[in-house]
Amino acid sequence: MQKKRKTVEYGKYGYIFLVPFFLVFLIFQLYPLLYTFYISFFKQVQLGHGRKAVTEMVPGLGNYTDYVFGSLGGGEVFNAIIVTIVMWLLNFVPQILLSLLLAGWFTDAFNKLRGEGAYKVIMYMPNIITAATIAVLFYSFFDVNGSITGLLKSVGILNDNSDILKSGYASLFIIAFIQFWMWYGNTMIVLIAGIMGISPSLYEAAMVDGATPTQQFWLITMPLLKPILQFTLVTSAIGGLQMYDIPQLFNKGGPVVKWGANSVNSTQTIIMLVKSYIDAGPKQDYGRAAAYSVILFIITLAISMIFFLATSEKKSKSSGVG
């Protein structure tokens, strides 16, 4: 006689566990996202101010034609996006190179480093300090009477009269450096985790075949790291495009530089620009801020797509094993 085994169905509780996430996502992320799209199609036309303000929300593509692509907005969106992307590139390229190098060193099976754990902790530390503190700290370093300025002046790189923070390019570079310094430890840890996932037998086989460490790196590590690299690239790009705290606290949009006939705020990222239109005051214009946010969304989407496609694994059509 066969006893019927009672199978316990836990599957549906899995869905219940997912409910909180979906609730939060729907209310606090999806709805505002859709609403932002919605209000970006209403242009605010205001006559007068304060109590005497006569405000009209004109439906249509006004925000896009006038502010984003038109001359009324002074091209500020695209200036801000270029500043943001340049800032991110200056930060990310050195960051990924250094992290790959360090990850390679730390996971090298034949290179026993002493105090490896201590190195990892020290390199990760900058990520733990609050961005606000770091921005203020670096500002005081580079202030006219600051320590690093004094150092550079005594070595002779700067002449006595210069003021680094008044140079747009220097400020941009310093902010990119702060970001790099804060995040390279994090990227390194992620890459180490990725490399640890590669089977050591591959390296042993390669060594037996006489591959040099460089060849091992480029032919074994890099291809197998693609999923991790993809993750790092995309998350870094999204985070970089949304950079706000450090530039805001460092130089508040920074000194103005001239590109051709345009005056550009050299350290104003796109999020800072959007925020300036959200704050209460005479400048408040939700439609415009929403339109700028939509442009940011489109650009983020485009960049992420490019990265996904560039690092995707080509699924080999296995036609069976003989």
């Binding site: 036309v45 205001q46 101010h49 907005g73």
Partner: peptide, 10 residues
């Protein structure tokens, strides 16, 4: 003038 014109459309 450019900053005021682009930021404060009223």
């Amino acid at each position: 003038k450019d900053e005021v014109a682009s930021g404060y459309t009223n």
